[in-house]
Amino acid sequence: MIGIIRRFINKFFNGLFKKKKHIKLGLYGPPNGGKTTLANRICKDWLGEEMGKVSNIPHETREIQIKEQIVIKSGGKELSFNLVDTPGIATKIDYEDFLKSGMKEKEAKIRAKEATKGVIDAIRWLDDMDLVIVVLDATADPYSQVNITIIGNLQARDIPVLLVGNKVDLKRAKLKRVQSAFPQYNLVGISAKYGNSMEEFYEALFKIAS
């Protein structure tokens, strides 16, 4: 509740005195949806450099990563933002899952501990976001409670959302199923890894941000 009031006051005063120069654009979603791959794609497209490390092991991103002052252009318009890549939100973290990836027990336990802190931080940062891209793996079940909780919290905070169905390069991707889980949002299907449909993604981002 305090967060909502704080956000309302921030919005009110920002609107009164100045137009925000750099919006905070957050990447949210469950682990391994491709948030950092998308962050890297955006940074490569507009800054020529990557933002963070990606891997197939869940919870690779365990700290909030920020890339400041990204300026993107589309159709004669310009949008500048600070990109905030967040750790994947989960309801469970088992260090034994990391052992399966060949990690030693000590390393796996440290990773699990860092991952729990990452989830807490990601949720704390929700109140600071001006716009959020929810990155879902289009091959996974979209009806998971984590997805519903993330989107519900953004809705409750009145934060604009762009819904992205990632990994459309894979045959198992089911964009229609993702759309039917969240019919109130426009969905953009992309492959952040290969850069498929990124123009469509940037156009949708401009629409949401304006």
């Binding site: 989960a90 309801t91 469970k92 973290i93 260090y95 807490i120 704390r124 409670q145 909780t149």
Partner: peptide, 20 residues
């Protein structure tokens, strides 16, 4: 729901692995 996830994360250890 978000608070529940945060509290769950705070309590995860070798025995308690979280919730569904």
């Amino acid at each position: 729901e978000a608070d529940l996830i945060q509290k769950t994360m705070e309590q995860i250890d070798d025995k308690f692995k979280g919730i569904e």
